[in-house]
C-alpha cells in the first residue's frame, strides 16, 4: 500500500469511502480497497494472499442479520424453518428469504439442506479455490460475485452453476442462487465494468 502514488492513494480513498457503509471495520475497508483497486486498475492483479484475504472477509460477511425483506413471489405458504408458514406480507431476514426461495421452494439445493447448511455451503463455495471471482458494478454499485459449478450442491431443480453476490455498500451478501441462464447470465449489461479476478474452473 505504501508504494501507491499519492494520486492513486487518494483515488482509492475516495472509492472506498463511496462504496463502504459508515462504521465499517478495518477488515472490511481493507477488503474493499483491494477489490476496488483491482476493479479500477486493469493491470493490478491481486496476489494470492490478497485475494484469499478478500474472500475470507466475504465468507464471514453473510446475509445482513438486521435487515428484513418482504416475502415475494412463490414464497407465500412455504414452511418456515422454525415452524409455521410464510404469510402474505411477511417480512423476514434475508438469510431465511433466500433459503426459502432457493432451497425449500425452488429446490436448487439438495432438499435436505437446512438454513444453516445453506449458509455454510455458500461459505464453502467462497472458500473453494476452484470458484471464480468476478468484480463488477451491478446497476451502478460495486459487487463481488463468487461463482462455481454447483456439483454436490445441485438439487432436484438445480442448475450447472451457482453464485453468491457480495454488495460492497451493505457489506453483506445480496443473494446466493443457481444460475438459470448459466454463466452467460453474468455477462448481462446490468453488470458493468466486469473483471474476473479469478476464472472459475470448468468455465
Amino acid at each position: 500500500m505504501s508504494r501507491e502514488p499519492d494520486a492513486r492513494r487518494a483515488e482509492l480513498d475516495r472509492l472506498v469511502a463511496a462504496a463502504t457503509r459508515p462504521g465499517a471495520g478495518r477488515a472490511e475497508r481493507d477488503a474493499h480497497r483491494l477489490i476496488l483497486d483491482a476493479a479500477t486498475a486493469p493491470r493490478r492483479d491481486l496476489a494470492p494472499e490478497e485475494l484469499a484475504g478478500v474472500l475470507r472477509h466475504v465468507a464471514r460477511a453473510g446475509f445482513d442479520p438486521h435487515a428484513l425483506e418482504r416475502a415475494r413471489g412463490n414464497l407465500v405458504g412455504a414452511p418456515r424453518p422454525d415452524g409455521g408458514r410464510v404469510r402474505t406480507g411477511d417480512r423476514l431476514p434475508p438469510a431465511e428469504i433466500h433459503y426459502l426461495r432457493h432451497v425449500v421452494v425452488q429446490e436448487e439445493w439438495p432438499t435436505d439442506a437446512t438454513l444453516a447448511g445453506y449458509v455454510a455451503s455458500i461459505q464453502a463455495v467462497i472458500a473453494d479455490p476452484e470458484s471464480g471471482v468476478l468484480v463488477s458494478r451491478f446497476q451502478g454499485v460495486w459487487q463481488l460475485t463468487v461463482v462455481r459449478e454447483s456439483r454436490e450442491l445441485r438439487g432436484p431443480r438445480g442448475r450447472d452453476w451457482l453464485m453468491v453476490d457480495y454488495r460492497l455498500p451493505t457489506g453483506h451478501w445480496t443473494t446466493a442462487y443457481q444460475l438459470r441462464g448459466g454463466l452467460p447470465q453474468l455477462e448481462q449489461s446490468e453488470r458493468e465494468d466486469r473483471r474476473w479476478l479469478r476464472v472459475p474452473a470448468g468455465a
Binding site: E69, Q139, D165, H172, T174
Partner: peptide, 27 residues
Amino acid sequence: AEWPDLADGERASFAAEWSNYMGGVAQ
C-alpha cells in the same frame, strides 16, 4: 409501489433475483 421506501439491500436483492428469473425467461 413500495420501491421508494425499500432499503438498498432489499432493492438489490429483488434486482438480483429478477435478473435470474429473466435468465429463466431466455431459457
